[in-house]
Design a protein around this nucleic acid. Structure first.
Lengths: 351, 351
DNA sequence: TTGTACGCGTTATCAG
DNA sequence: CTGATAACGCGTACAA
């Protein structure tokens, strides 16, 4: 491999060759403006602390050279990249998109940029990815973590970490208040005369899946409904399809799925198998993802304000890094049952 | 504002306080290993060019101190951040989801990280965002650009830029071969005896929208079908709803929408208004987005391999920065008509 | 208010 | 094969 650059740092920018004219630095600006580089630096970051005409000279030079600060150079002495990491278990999951949307916009508003990473549902990958993100970003949002509480706490020692839909001692989080949504759902099923409801769980390592089950079970007990758990399936449409048979065999007249994807898979498989929804079986999902109202019948679901949650998570990180004022906790975000067409009165009495 | 740090650079890492123990540097490693910092650097980046036992000493020290390279420090002399920017017009658009999915995975495979930005459909915002991305990332992918050819070319002078679904001279791009898909669609409509089809266009500034119209118009002429353009609506479900009336008034018996979102809005509005799809009117979308098969009837659509396109775009950027071998163009990616339930034989003859 | 000088953590040249 | 050292671009005590 040969190097024919005369740059002081051969690997450096000027060695790339492919690039256009070398970007201007504060030194170039300083020279043109007839001031010192440090003055330029100040003029750019602390507009007040500079004399009016020096400022003008600098601004003119900046325009003339089309100067832009080099963010990575700025980040080195500063330690801040104005970047926030967003880590999700599975990019494919529509839940993530709503979160990302809220997060991106919240970040952009504060002039921060989002850095994306996916863990492919693997705790090991997630840990590595989180560490990599923390090395670049000023803070990280864990959207659907499969890590242990300890691991998360440990990560949060170096830089601000915020988790979504998960409770970890000493780590700030943004939670959906699923209790109310679930209560509404169970009451809804109760009114429709259901006596037995199944819960199709998500990934084993999902904290949220376990939590949802606990609350569903609890509320069902209150209402004298028997709740039957149906073990860990993938949180996808396919996962839902595969779980359909087990649900049917359970004898339940209604089913609550870990999320909308699973619910949709369940519905597809059941309708495809000749069952009628909701006459034969009622289906409820979680999250109100994009498209959950496209189905026939449209899916009844416990909706979470995903975009807001993404935004709030960013907001919390921003506070932690001191980029924004605000204080106090962000209370759990409201959740509600969206009654659409996939739930109805029981027709076939439970055996 | 007071500063009580004794760090040489007060704004620097050690001043943050919130952070845990200061991260180890190569100097710490060097000291512990009893070698020079530059040796550590080499041991880490060029494993071959170091003696076996020096290497071991370094590795041990690395583990002992739990050392991690500082990516921003590395990026300064190097000029490479191992980061690629992905810029989209609207995060909310499901088309973007699939592209992002493919892109993220392709990037992760090569050990690159994705940086996200949204332009909110505004050319000004897009330009600014692109410039910001280019300052941080090693290259940028423009997924749904609203910029002019010149602006894009200009951006691509500093660092590699790849566009998706857009043709710009001198700028590498990843394109879906929409001709075949559209040909299939028009032929399909022809076989169903349609004589007049409407095209509901997308945003005025969308290059893709114009191109789709051109080809549709062309193919319709071939088949002696009259094609009627229905001007720029927002590329959203809402945009589709608003355009429904105009479509009906046009007297067309079939409509091709700028994308699936618009098509779904169209369908919702029409079905809501008492029309039957496809008996009264056939509807075809573009892209085969997530959920487009959830509708009733499921949407017939011209599908693009969005995830592959995202991946290919990243691949092209990676080649340009020399991070990956490969050469040659990436041919246009195949497109095909997915015939589902929203298209059928004309029932009402055109007036 | 402005200039001087140094350091942020890493890479790469150049001697040894 | 390894050590010393300059430089990447910028921010900021400190002195002027």
């Amino acid at each position: 491999m040969r190097t024919e650059s005369n740059s002081p740092v051969p690997g450096g920018p000027s060695a790339v060759g492919r690039e256009g004219r070398q970007a201007a630095t504060i030194y170039d600006v300083a020279k043109l403006a007839g001031v010192n580089a440090s003055t330029v630096s100040r003029a750019l970051s602390q507009p007040g602390r500079i004399s009016a005409k020096t400022d003008k000279k600098v601004q003119d030079a900046v325009k003339a050279l089309n100067y832009r600060v080099n963010p990575v150079a700025r980040a080195l002495p500063t330690g801040r990249t104005k970047t926030i990491g967003l880590l999700v278990a599975d990019i494919t999951n529509p839940v993530f998109f709503d979160i990302a949307r809220g997060a991106e916009r919240a970040a952009a508003t504060r002039d921060y940029t989002l850095v994306l990473a996916e863990s492919a549902e693997s705790p090991e990958t997630e840990l590595l990815a989180a560490q990599r993100l923390l090395a670049v970003a000023d803070g990280v949002v864990l959207a659907t973590s499969r890590l242990s509480d300890d691991q998360i706490r440990q990560l949060s020692q170096s830089k601000p970490v915020v988790v979504i839909n998960r409770e970890v001692a000493d780590v700030p989080s943004v939670m959906a208040d699923i209790e109310t949504g679930i209560s509404q759902a169970v009451r809804h099923l109760f009114m429709l005369a259901h006596k037995s409801v199944a819960y199709v769980a998500g990934p084993e390592r999902s904290w949220m899946s376990r939590r949802r089950w606990e609350i569903i079970n609890d509320r069902c007990n209150w209402s004298n409904i028997s709740a039957v758990p149906i073990g860990g399936s993938a949180p996808t449409v396919e996962g839902g399809r595969k779980a359909a048979m087990k649900v049917l065999e359970s004898g339940a007249t209604a089913v609550i799925a870990y999320n909308d994807l699973v619910a949709i898979g369940l519905m597809q498989e059941m309708v495809g198998g000749g069952k009628d929804v909701p006459d034969d079986i009622s289906i409820i999902g979680f999250d109100n993802i994009f498209g959950s109202d496209f189905t026939t019948p449209p899916l009844t679901t416990i909706s979470s304000p995903l975009a807001e949650m993404g935004a709030s998570a960013i907001e919390l990180v921003l506070r932690a890094v001191g980029a924004t004022e605000g204080a106090g906790d962000i209370g759990d975000l409201a959740t509600e049952l969206l009654i659409r067409g996939s739930t109805g009165k029981v027709r076939i009495p439970p055996r």
